[in-house]
């Protein structure tokens, strides 16, 4: 009996994981279904756009500028090993728009937004505000989840685009001021090297990551346990799940977009 205990534990964990994925998929289906049917809560959507998009700009911008700068330094010192220092503008640009812009932007938004959505909705759940919504003939998924998920799906690509530009600017600043690049040459190399698909693929990733972040925040908030501990657990689970799903989805999307 005890020899089989680890196998039984593994089986239970696997079944638990599959059940959780099923619940999340069902929740995502409900959100998408409500997204296409009226009523639409425009005021809540615009509020979510401000909260998720506008107020995330500083943290995404700061992350991007330092990442672009560090990337330029790394590529310069690494490239020097095989006399390839001049590829700094190209690699900073492609690295930012294809990978680091969307992934780091998505992770920063996950930390900031998934946690706040889960805490807000979780608190609403434990204080019976979600039950109150139902008694007031308002579907909580339509009223709480749809505006947030739609806003995140639309605004995170914009954040990624801004982050890309700031990240490239960070690389340019370091390249020109510390590594001795000519400013015009650096910018010309960046513009010439980037292709449209490099940018568009990053923006598509941003939209998918935005969807994941808001979905995880809403799902964990609405399934929050009781009391402060339940809300704390929901908040933690939302950030962890969103971060892991962003990294896993990034791998899948990169494989889909760039290997053929």
């Amino acid at each position: 009996m005890s020899l089989l205990a680890p196998v039984a534990g593994l089986g239970r964990a696997t079944l638990g994981l599959l059940a959780a994925l099923g619940r999340i998929a069902f929740f995502a289906g409900q959100v998408l279904s409500h997204m296409l049917r009226p009523p639409f809560y425009l005021r809540e959507f615009l509020h979510a756009v401000m909260q998720i998009g506008w107020f995330s700009l500083p943290v995404v911008g700061m992350t991007a500028v330092f990442t672009g700068g560090a990337l330029a330094l790394q590529i310069y010192s690494g490239g020097a090993r095989f006399n390839a220092e001049l590829v700094v503008p190209n690699i900073v640009a492609i690295g930012m728009v294809r990978e680091l812009g969307p992934v780091l932007g998505g992770l920063m938004v996950a930390a900031r937004v998934a946690s706040s959505i889960a805490a807000e909705i979780g608190t609403m759940k434990v204080t019976e505000q979600i039950d109150a919504l139902v008694t007031l003939s308002t579907n909580p998924i339509k009223y709480l989840a749809v505006p947030r998920v739609a806003a995140a799906t639309l605004t995170v690509p914009v954040l990624v685009a801004v982050g890309d530009a700031i990240g490239i600017a960070g690389g340019w600043l370091v390249g020109v001021n510390r590594l001795g690049f000519n400013s015009a040459t650096y910018l010309q190399s960046t513009v010439n090297f980037l292709e449209g698909w490099d940018i568009v693929s990053g923006l598509i990733k941003g939209a998918v990551f935005g969807f994941i972040v808001a979905l995880m925040g809403c799902y964990h908030g609405m399934t929050s346990g009781r009391g402060a501990q339940g809300v704390g657990q929901a908040t933690k689970s939302a950030v962890v799940a969103a971060s892991v799903m962003i990294l896993a989805t990034n791998y899948l999307l990169t494989g889909l977009f760039f290997t053929s």
Partner: peptide
């Protein structure tokens, strides 16, 4: 139906009148 919840369950992001008029502003 109308319901008075134990803890009030007022929407804390809304003003008092918006809470009271919640159903009247929608649906």
């Amino acid at each position: 139906f109308g319901m008075l919840f134990q803890g009030g369950a007022l929407f804390d992001s809304m003003r008092v009148w918006e809470n009271v008029a919640f159903r009247l502003l929608r649906g």
